[in-house]
Amino acid sequence: MKRVYVREEYCAGCGLCQVHCITAHSEYKGDIIKAYKKSFPRPLARVIVEEKRPLSFSLQCRHCEEAECVKACITGAMQKDPATGIVINDTARCIGCWTCVLVCPYGAVRRDETLHKVAVKCDMCAEAGGVPSCVENCPNGALEYREER
């Protein structure tokens, strides 16, 4: 399946992937200012940016074949779509036990405790379809959306 891969040698660490991720997961898609200023709660970025200069890279859910989070989920909220391979957390059923946080070897699941506790993670912008927003908006081509090589 296609996944998002980072080329850390070109990641500028700017964090725009996060900005666009937040926007894409807000109620105001395509409008960054409203996404930031009006959506409540403001979504958490599903992209993690790590930086230890000069190194920087962003990281999202790998949508593992053998997804630990899916297998460990105590509520059944975390599911891998058998058709697309995308691992999506059903936030309505998630109760924030953080078992997924405990088992994700990439540390790609975030905790959102703004309202009720819920685990959030990259959904490949599946709802919108196409290229994930982080990839689309990376200013330096550091994120690639491609089949594994």
Binding site: I48, E68, W98, C100, V101, L102, V103, C104, P105, Y106, G107, V109, R110, R111
Partner: peptide, 14 residues
């Protein structure tokens, strides 16, 4: 602080 401790679990596993 338990965020990303799955990385530790992964290190144990692998």
């Amino acid at each position: 602080d338990i965020d990303r401790t799955g990385i530790l679990t992964g290190l144990i596993k692998d």
